[in-house]
Computed example of a mutant assay.
Amino acid sequence: MEHGSLATERDAVVQRLRDVGLRVTGPRLEVLQLLAAGDHLDVESITDRARARLGTLTSQAVYEMLRHFMETGLVRKFERPGRPAVFELAGTPHHHALCSQCGRVTNVAAETPEAPRKGLRGWRMTETELIFHGQCPDCR
């Protein structure tokens, strides 16, 4: 990646923090830049990668940052049954594929089905999440 695009990416992350009213700090920038790379990371992975660049950072601090990021709509949490949840930058709505063997999560661009009317009388749907379960290419 070119130096100019790194600066542009960093500027975009700084602007996202400011847009939601959060103070710009080194740890917040680092965590958001890790997520901006497009990976779905659990807290341990985020902490380890950020700590390698910052020198010191606790898992508790990462949990707190992620909580603030979710409250402000910057980050979304994806639950993986039997495994730690992973986090990603919020953005364009999409769905996920989940590897049942290694837990890898990949974004999927797929049309969202309309909620069925039968059996949901009185419900007001606010969100639809489609998850494709299977084995990733590495586990096949």
Rank of each mutant, 00 (worst) to 15 (best):
W123G: 08
A50M: 11
H40S: 09
G4P: 04
L29C: 11
R28D: 10
H40Y: 15
C139F: 00
C99D: 03
D48V: 15
T112Q: 10
R140T: 13
F78D: 10
E9F: 13
L98G: 02
H133Y: 07
V108S: 05
T47I: 04
V20A: 08
R23V: 14
R10Y: 07
M125L: 11
Q60R: 00
H96T: 07
V105H: 00
P84F: 03
G82P: 05
L57I: 02
L130G: 03
Q101S: 07
L130K: 12
Q135R: 14
R28P: 08
H94M: 04
V24C: 09
F87G: 01
E2I: 12
R10V: 10
P84R: 11
L34S: 07
E127P: 01
D39P: 04
R67T: 12
C99A: 01
R104H: 05
A37I: 00
D138R: 04
S45M: 14
L89S: 00
L74R: 03
A50I: 09
T92D: 07
R121K: 12
H40F: 15
R10S: 12
L74P: 04
G119Y: 11
L54E: 01
H133E: 14
E71S: 11
R80Y: 05
Q33G: 14
V86N: 00
V31C: 09
L57K: 01
R23T: 14
P116S: 12
A90M: 05
R18D: 09
R16D: 08
T72L: 10
V62W: 01
A115S: 13
D19I: 04
R10N: 11
R124H: 10
A110H: 12
E2L: 13
R18L: 15
R51A: 12
R80G: 03
H133F: 08
A109M: 08
A12D: 02
T126A: 09
G21K: 10
E127D: 15
R117H: 13
R67F: 13
V108M: 12
F69E: 05
E88I: 05
S45I: 02
T92E: 15
H96K: 04
G134S: 05
G82L: 07
T126Y: 11
R76C: 07
H68W: 13
P27Y: 09
P93R: 11
E71W: 12
T92H: 02
L74H: 06
P116V: 11
G122N: 04
R28E: 08
R18P: 04
L22F: 06
D42Q: 05
G91T: 02
G91R: 00
L89G: 06
L41V: 05
E30N: 08
A37K: 10
V75Y: 06
S45V: 10
E88R: 00
G103M: 01
M125A: 09
V75E: 00
G119Q: 05
F69S: 01
Q135N: 10
R16Q: 06
A50D: 07
R51N: 05
G134L: 04
F78P: 00
T47Q: 14
V86S: 01
G134T: 06
G26Y: 09
G4M: 13
R117G: 15
Q135Y: 10
C99S: 03
D48G: 08
T72G: 10
R80H: 06
V75R: 05
R83A: 13
R140P: 02
M1D: 08
T112M: 10
T92Q: 09
G55R: 03
E9M: 15
G4L: 11
L41T: 02
L66G: 03
L41H: 05
T128S: 11
E114V: 15
P81G: 12
T56H: 07
